[in-house]
Write a protein that binds this DNA or RNA. Structure first.
Length: 200
DNA sequence: TGCGCGATATACT
DNA sequence: GTATATCGCGCAA
């Protein structure tokens, strides 16, 4: 059921970002399972990508996990408030990562609702990277964890979206990245209500 | 050791 | 639409 280690070690992070759309992402904490299928991702293409933390081979304590072989999680804090979940891909020494920006929840929605402090469930419960992490209980203490673990994993349940249903557009919030800001590295399911704001 | 700033979300007007 | 919370990283000094 779980996607195997080899799935993540593909060298083409753009292709993987596209392929992860429709895959099921799960977490389990204290026996509570939450998850759903991925509807929005962004690719961060290693040391040549100005929007990536690893741009120009910036290997530091923070970025170290991105240099590991694919198949683990990279979780970091942004704006002092939001945690973001990334999937590390490619081979060792190649700091590629896929940012999970939105999922369509299917399991443990009540638990996610509680974690998000929401009185009523609305689509923004898992819309946007910070929301996904909070709803699924993901934080930096999970940084570097294997996707073969029983805490965080991804499954292929046969859900497929064709190219007509998926949009490829520039990434969000990376204006500082110069020319690389225009690259179509953001993928999402057209019309899905859980996709985060900027267009749909 | 200090400082500027960001892969955002939310509560405002 | 725009204001603002809030912190640790990366680089300069």
């Amino acid at each position: 059921m779980k996607l195997p280690e080899s799935y993540y070690q593909d060298n083409d992070v753009i292709k993987l970002s596209r392929d992860l759309i429709g895959k099921y992402l799960f977490t389990r904490f204290d026996g509570l399972v939450t998850g759903g299928y991925i509807v929005e991702t962004e690719a961060y293409n290693g040391i040549i990508d100005r929007a990536s933390h690893a741009y120009n081979d910036r290997r530091t304590n923070r970025t170290e996990v991105m240099y590991h072989a694919g198949g683990i999680a990279y979780v970091y804090l942004c704006y002092g408030i939001h945690e973001m979940l990334n999937i590390v891909t490619s081979v060792e020494g190649q700091p590629h990562a896929v940012l999970i920006r939105a999922i369509n929840p299917t399991e443990g929605i009540d638990i996610m609702q509680y974690r998000r402090d929401m009185a009523v469930v609305k689509p923004n419960i898992t819309s946007g990277p910070g929301s996904v992490a909070k709803a699924m209980g993901i934080s930096r203490r999970i940084n570097g964890i294997s996707l073969q673990s029983d805490t965080l994993w991804i499954e292929d349940r046969g859900l497929v979206f064709n190219d007509e249903q998926i949009a490829a557009v520039p990434r969000v919030g990376v204006d500082y990245a110069g020319e690389d800001a225009a690259l179509p590295y953001r993928f999402y399911v057209k019309g899905n209500p859980y996709v985060s704001k900027p267009n749909r």
